[in-house]
Each structure stands twice: as C-alpha cells, then as structure tokens.
Computed example of a mutant assay.
Amino acid sequence: MPEDNPPPDVSPRAAVARRIAALRHARGLSLTALAARAGIGKGTLSELESGTRNPTLETLYALAGPLGVPLTGLVGDEAGRSVSDGVVDAHLLSVRTHDDGGTTEVFWLTLAPGGTRISPAHRPGTVEHFRVVRGRGHAGERGAEQGLGPGEAHSWPGDTVHTYGSEEGAEGVLVIETPGDVPGPS
C-alpha cells in the first residue's frame, strides 16, 4: 500500500493526502475523473491531496470505493487511528491483510444520537458486520436496515449503499471484510 509507513514527522492529514495522491496516480486517474467517480468536488479532492483540508469519514469512504481500497488504505493501518464525520466516529482497533490481498478491519464505532450516515458501496465482495455493545442503533443495506440493541448483530453486503444510525446513540464493533484478488477500477 502506498505510504503505509510515512516518516514519523508527517502528520496524519499529510499521510492521508500522500496516500490519496499515490493511489490516484497508480490508477491513472485525473483529479477530475476521481472526483466524479467519488461524487465529490474537484476542489475538495485537490485540497485533500495538498493536505490543506481535513478528510471526513464520508469523503474517505467515497474515495476508497473508486480507488479499490479499504478505508485503512487511505488512513493507514496503525491501530488507534480515528476518523469522524459528526455522526459516526470510527476508531481502528486492528487490521489484517491476508495472503490473497484481502483485509479484515475491526473498528470501534460510536454513533451520535439522532444521526444517520449513508455510506457508499465499497469494493465488490465486501461484507460488513456490526455488533452493538451499548445503546440502540440501526445498520445495513439502505432500505433494509436492522434495528439493533446491546448484544445484537447484523451483517450485510458492503458493496451496496448502506447506513449506520441511532436515535439515542450507540457503540459497537464494526468488522469490514474486503476480498483480495479483485481487479481495481479502471
């Protein structure tokens, strides 16, 4: 993965900027093409790549799909990294890269009260699993979300548009399994 281990003097924002730019170049995509595929503004993408804009979770997920990488492909695979968008706070607990290039990412997810986050489709074959530990929330394929309380879990195809949300706030563990050996976008 490009820039997996940036120099220690590089800020997390600068490391994300380098990863996005390196992946975009490796895929032969222009700023305009990647921005269009991700559904974000070209100016936003330019600011992210220059390190002058803080990336939100929503924007990172929007970019990860067209770049063909899991979220940790953009934020790094160091445990303890966090990214938030005001509705969802994702704190990386662990990531494992498998022999076939697939990954299993484990996040502690905190859902803010009264919010719902729509997540774009991830790489083909991705599967997500969410287990609520505290509070009540809902998650799953958009239009087929499941309500979940403490100890309850739900799994769904992560390669479809899906949502996370809670009326009262919730916390739990999210596992994202991304397959390997799947050709990236052209």
Rank of each mutant, 00 (worst) to 15 (best):
M1F: 13
P2H: 12
V10Q: 13
V10K: 13
S11E: 09
V16C: 07
R19E: 12
I20Y: 03
L23S: 04
L23D: 01
H25M: 10
H25R: 15
H25D: 14
R27S: 14
R27N: 11
L29Q: 12
S30F: 11
A33W: 00
A35I: 00
A36L: 09
R37W: 04
R37S: 14
G39S: 06
I40D: 02
I40P: 02
G41P: 07
K42F: 00
K42V: 15
T44G: 02
L45E: 04
S46V: 07
S46Q: 14
E49V: 05
S50D: 01
G51H: 13
R53N: 03
P55I: 14
P55Y: 03
P55N: 06
T56Q: 04
L57Y: 08
E58N: 04
T59R: 03
L60Q: 04
A62L: 03
L63Y: 06
L63A: 02
L63E: 05
P66M: 06
P66G: 04
G68N: 07
V69A: 03
P70A: 13
G73L: 07
G73V: 13
G73A: 05
V75I: 15
V75E: 01
V75F: 02
G76P: 04
D77T: 06
E78F: 09
E78G: 00
R81D: 01
S82W: 00
S82I: 02
S82F: 00
V83M: 05
S84E: 15
D85L: 02
G86P: 06
V88D: 07
V88M: 11
V88Q: 09
A90Y: 10
A90H: 08
V95Y: 10
H98T: 13
D99T: 12
D100C: 09
G101S: 06
E105S: 09
F107T: 08
W108Y: 00
W108L: 10
L109K: 01
T110V: 12
L111T: 00
L111Q: 09
A112K: 11
G114F: 00
G114I: 12
G115I: 04
A121R: 08
A121Q: 05
A121G: 03
G125M: 01
G125C: 07
T126S: 11
V127F: 08
E128N: 11
F130Y: 13
V132Y: 01
V133Q: 07
R134C: 07
G135F: 02
G135C: 08
G137H: 04
H138D: 02
A139N: 04
G140I: 01
G140C: 06
G143T: 04
G143H: 12
Q146L: 14
G147F: 03
G149I: 03
E152T: 03
H154Q: 05
P157D: 13
P157K: 09
T160A: 11
T160W: 01
G165W: 06
S166A: 11
S166L: 12
E167Q: 14
E168G: 15
E168I: 11
G169K: 12
G169Q: 08
A170F: 00
A170S: 07
G172C: 03
G172S: 08
G172W: 00
V173Y: 05
V173M: 03
E177N: 13
G180M: 09
D181V: 00
V182M: 12
P183M: 12
S186P: 15
